[in-house]
Design a binder for these strands. Structure first.
Lengths: 239, 239
DNA sequence: CTATTAAAAACAATCGTTCGATTGAAAAAA
DNA sequence: TTTTTTCAATCGAACGATTGTTTTTAATAG
């Protein structure tokens, strides 16, 4: 009985024994589920369709993830892990940058430019990060099992880092409610471009940000961000 | 046969005859469906649960709306109608305000203040408008039947109006891509507060915007908006 | 009586989940 | 080396529950 209670294959195993390909199937389910859940939500995807898309049997989902809900949660954990190589250096660079800048407004301005560019290119990119945005936005407005994972691993670290930048730029405390609000403005503005991606493209008359002029988007949003922080005059003009 | 093809009870009828309560049942379904769809999405709500919540029989949904999909579309049409009393004066006031202001930056600044306040209070209010925001945000990122209705009746008119304000403030053309992008920043920023409502409250440590300090939110976002438009120095200080 | 509204019952389809059986390769025994 | 054992991995079939829809029947007002 491979599926009895004590033996829970929630994590990858494949310790040599048994049939090969286990990890591959698990990973394939995880990747497919991420895209489909992001596109149509938890209730919008059936286990059968998912299994078909991932080219596995329906029961494999229960085998690896204890059911649909477990799979959903696993997708978020995987998402966190996959985006760490982008996310962790970004937040670290901001935190370190604020320390290095001290009260040098010019350094803070270039750090802000760097932040906006990193956020927007992440949010507007064509590849993996995009459907991950979809999952996140869904959880933000309709919190389910994934929300706490996101809040703990993504939202809080990023907001804390950016709050440090905002506080330094506006000469306030990082905990001040004005700082928190301005941080929400800054990050929320970049997120809004990812959330309303289709809307923005429609308004611009573009087919995609690649076909259009992504640097111009970055430039405009960066100017707006610098202005919000009162760093516009401190900043050298952007090309 | 009340549901034959030519006789489509998509609109309210109740011409006096028949069993009483016709319009009431229809309106009750519509209101209940709006809240539930906003909360859990189209696939997250079953017709049976909906009928139970609206205190009608399941078949009544098919009778009035030709099925679940028809009900969903009807909810959006109703949403547009219900929010017209708030939306139409707002956009009209912006358009007229831009004409009246001409190139007077001070007038444009106070118009901007008025706009941000109107948007934020709409987006963050506790009442009806809130679940309507939920429906809209859902459609933005996962366009279904409601998207075209929203784009035509809400997005485009509001963006066109605000683009006029942005263009006047930054001395550009309303059609310029910089104008369009800045407009997306401005509106998107306010929408972000509605979309990530729970996130913002969590970061602020507030229970609700009423329990917290809504005017402070408005004030901070307004300053950010004025800065983005280069109108901060033109503006008298906010109390 | 006729038209309209409402409810109850039944419909086929699909849902998430579970089950026992089977596969194939590594590990152990011969 | 060959044979046997073990076990993760996979499969097909089926479960009961629930889905959206339709049909049938009852009730009410003009």
């Amino acid at each position: 009985m491979p599926n009895s209670d004590p033996v829970i294959p929630l994590e990858a195993r494949s310790q040599g024994r048994g049939r090969p390909g286990g990890d591959k199937s698990r990973a394939r389910i995880l990747a497919t589920a991420g895209e489909l859940f992001a596109e149509r939500g938890f209730n919008g995807v059936s286990t059968r369709e998912l299994a078909k898309a991932a080219d596995v049997n329906v029961s494999t989902i229960a085998y690896y993830f204890r059911g649909k809900k477990g799979l959903y949660r696993a997708v978020f954990k995987q998402l966190i892990e996959d985006t760490n190589p982008f996310f962790l250096p970004t937040t670290a660079h901001i935190c370190q940058g604020v320390i290095n800048a001290g009260s040098d407004k010019q350094k803070l301005a270039s750090l802000t430019r760097w932040l906006i560019q990193a956020l927007l290119e992440g949010v507007l990119s064509e590849d993996t990060i995009r459907w991950q945005m979809g999952l996140m936005l869904r959880e933000y407005h309709q919190p389910t099992d994934g929300f706490s994972i996101l809040m703990e691993n993504r939202v809080n670290p990023m907001h804390d880092a950016v709050a440090g930048l905002v506080a330094a730029a506006t000469d306030r405390e990082p905990e001040a409610s004005e700082t928190v609000l301005l941080t929400c403005c800054l990050i929320g503005q970049c997120m809004a471009f990812g959330a309303a991606r289709g809307l923005v493209l429609a308004r611009l008359g573009w087919d995609s940000f690649e076909a259009g002029d992504l640097p111009q988007v970055v430039d405009t949003v960066t100017r707006a961000a610098l202005a919000m922080l009162g760093l516009l005059e401190e900043s050298a003009d952007v090309a």
